[in-house]
């Protein structure tokens, strides 16, 4: 299991753009990590990397899901923080976003791990205890 050191926010964004190049329609990428660990920064840079051109990329914290069109690809950006269990996540109709033309990006996937596609890319962002600006990015493989 390798961890990537991200010195600052710009490094987080660069890592996200790198992941954007590898994503295909049907892919699901999840972002775990504490409040302020950089999940939203990563998600927004990822969406820009995927070609989302919308002026505003509003937080899905309240709306639970924000959707975008980027050429042939559709992007669903979700935040499951306020959902309590699998049943509630299912009510959102999330399964539909796990196949083409959708690419799904999910913050707080811990709420309903069992619903995620088996091949989901699971990323974890963590603070660095020495440097407040720095983060660690890790791909979780089960």
């Amino acid at each position: 299991m390798s961890r990537l050191y991200l010195a600052d926010e710009a490094a987080t964004r660069a890592a996200a753009r790198h992941w954007a190049e590898r994503l295909q329609p049907g892919d699901c990428l999840t972002l775990a990590g504490d409040l302020g660990a950089g999940k939203s920064v990563f998600a927004r840079a990822l969406m820009r990397g995927l070609g989302v051109r919308d002026h505003a990329l509003p937080s899905p914290s309240y709306s639970l899901i924000e959707v975008y069109q980027a050429g042939e690809v559709c992007v669903a950006h979700m935040d499951w923080y306020r959902l309590s269990d699998e049943e509630e996540v299912l009510m959102l109709g999330v399964m539909d976003y796990f196949s083409p033309p959708w690419i799904s990006i999910i913050e707080w996937p811990e709420r309903a791990e069992a619903l995620l596609p088996r091949q989901a890319i699971r990323l974890l962002l963590q603070h660095d205890h020495q440097h407040p600006q720095a983060r660690w990015l890790e791909e979780i493989t089960s």
């Binding site: 409040l35 939203s40 927004r44 002026h55 505003a56 990329l57 509003p58 937080s59 914290s61 309240y62």
Partner: peptide
């Protein structure tokens, strides 16, 4: 004009959590 990311109320709520 609009927020490009978090809403003001969300910033209040998340700051409170922190």
């Amino acid at each position: 004009g609009q927020t490009l990311d978090d809403a003001a109320g969300e910033c209040f709520d998340k700051s409170a959590r922190l």
